[in-house]
Amino acid sequence: MERRMSVSAEVLARAPLEQLQGEVDTMNSHRPRSNVRPLSPMPDYVEHRNGVNEVGKLSAEAVVREYEAAVKEIEALGTELQLAAKNCEAMVAGVHDMIAEIKEFAAGYRDQGKRFFLQIEAVALMTTEVRDTCEALKKKIATDTLS
């Protein structure tokens, strides 16, 4: 049974590679450029196997490039998260420094309060002592004057 080739297969089989490339370039020149992006090199963790046809190779390359593009975005997100973590760590370190300063300030303020407390009580004791002395002197003067 004789097998017939499709028209496109016959054209491909007969056309020289340069002619086909020219036709592809012509078709591409009439297409809008918004979705066209240059192909990135194939990742080094894959390589074509022997015997895979051109369509299979191109399909596999397209898929692995899309996966690789997604991987690049995932890695970029990881980099952003690392930067955010470093910023958080710096902020936390700054907060710890501030807490240490606040504790030091609070201790100094507490000491100052204690000093004022002791000064006020010392003045109160002295005032009581002065009153007691004045009272004792009044009594002595009154006793000496009467005697």
Rank of each mutant, 00 (worst) to 15 (best):
M1W: 04
R3T: 06
S6I: 00
S6R: 09
S8D: 11
S8T: 06
A9F: 01
E10I: 02
E10L: 04
A15D: 01
P16I: 00
P16G: 12
L17D: 08
E18H: 07
E18Y: 04
E18C: 04
Q19P: 00
L20F: 11
E23T: 01
V24N: 04
T26Y: 08
T26M: 05
T26S: 07
N28Q: 12
S29T: 10
S29G: 03
P32I: 06
P32F: 03
S34R: 13
V36G: 08
P38D: 10
P38M: 07
L39Q: 13
S40K: 15
S40Q: 12
S40A: 12
S40G: 08
M42F: 03
M42E: 07
M42G: 06
M42R: 10
Y45F: 13
Y45L: 03
E47S: 12
R49T: 06
V52C: 06
V52F: 01
V52A: 15
V52N: 05
E54M: 02
E54Y: 04
V55W: 08
G56Q: 10
L58C: 12
L58H: 02
S59I: 02
S59Q: 04
A60Y: 09
V64R: 05
R65W: 07
E66G: 10
E68V: 00
E68R: 11
A70D: 03
A70F: 07
A70I: 03
V71W: 03
K72R: 15
L77H: 09
G78P: 06
T79P: 00
E80W: 05
E80Y: 07
E80I: 02
L83F: 05
L83H: 11
L83V: 12
A85C: 00
K86P: 00
N87D: 11
N87Q: 11
C88R: 02
E89K: 06
E89I: 01
M91A: 14
M91V: 01
V92K: 04
V92N: 05
A93P: 01
A93E: 15
V95S: 02
H96R: 14
A100Y: 00
A100I: 05
F105W: 05
Y109L: 08
Y109A: 11
D111F: 00
D111Q: 13
Q112F: 01
F117D: 15
F117W: 03
L118D: 15
Q119H: 08
Q119T: 13
I120A: 14
E121V: 02
A122P: 02
A124K: 14
L125H: 13
L125P: 00
L125K: 13
L125D: 11
T128Q: 14
E129D: 15
E129S: 14
R131M: 11
K138Q: 09
K139W: 03
I141V: 15
I141T: 14
T143Y: 08
T145P: 02
